[in-house]
Nucleic acid binder design. Structure first.
Length: 151
DNA sequence: GCCAACGTTGGC
DNA sequence: GCCAACGTTGGC
């Protein structure tokens, strides 16, 4: 899952390890559909975008599967969607909790240079998908690369 | 700040 | 249903 760290970063999770953070505001159907597939206990890579240190910053866990994103009903929210009603909601949110923060960001450069996620939309030009699946293979590649790099 | 790539909107 | 125009994303 992508996030701008100024809005929500891995540190926001790390600083409140026992609480959960609601992941709301996703307003793209493809991303939403991927969120709806996520189950409690699933592992999520957190990617910092549009910032100085671009890349994967750590790991969080799903603590609640998809529910109606309350922001879509709130006229005062940036994420308000006038076309959503309680009867016909469009958007979903999930809840996440802290798992791990990488000791250093696994940069997009490194991800590309070492082909850690060659098939992923993440490494493909022009992809704007903010929630995307990660294969077991990609996850293993990411974790073993960051271990090696830190040691 | 630039700009390519993308998704959405809305007139027809 | 098409597609031009528009707004947004996000790396550089």
């Amino acid at each position: 899952m992508k996030t701008e760290p100024e809005e929500c970063s891995i540190d926001d999770f790390a600083n409140s390890p026992k609480s959960t953070i609601m992941w709301d505001g996703v307003r793209n159907y493809q991303a939403r559909n991927f969120m709806r597939q996520m189950q409690v206990g699933d592992t999520v890579l957190i990617y910092h975008s549009s910032c100085k240190d671009i890349g994967i910053a750590g790991i969080v866990d799903v603590t609640q599967s998809a529910f109606d994103d309350p922001a879509q009903f709130d006229p005062n929210s940036d994420y308000y969607d006038p076309k959503s009603t309680v009867d016909t909601p469009r958007w979903s949110a999930i809840r996440l909790s802290f798992s791990k923060k990488f000791q250093q960001i696994l940069s997009l450069q490194d991800i590309k240079a070492n082909s850690l996620m060659p098939e992923s939309p993440l490494t493909q030009k022009g992809s704007r998908l903010s929630v995307m699946p990660v294969t077991d293979e990609e996850f293993s590649a990411v974790v073993s690369y960051i271990r090696k790099k830190i040691c």
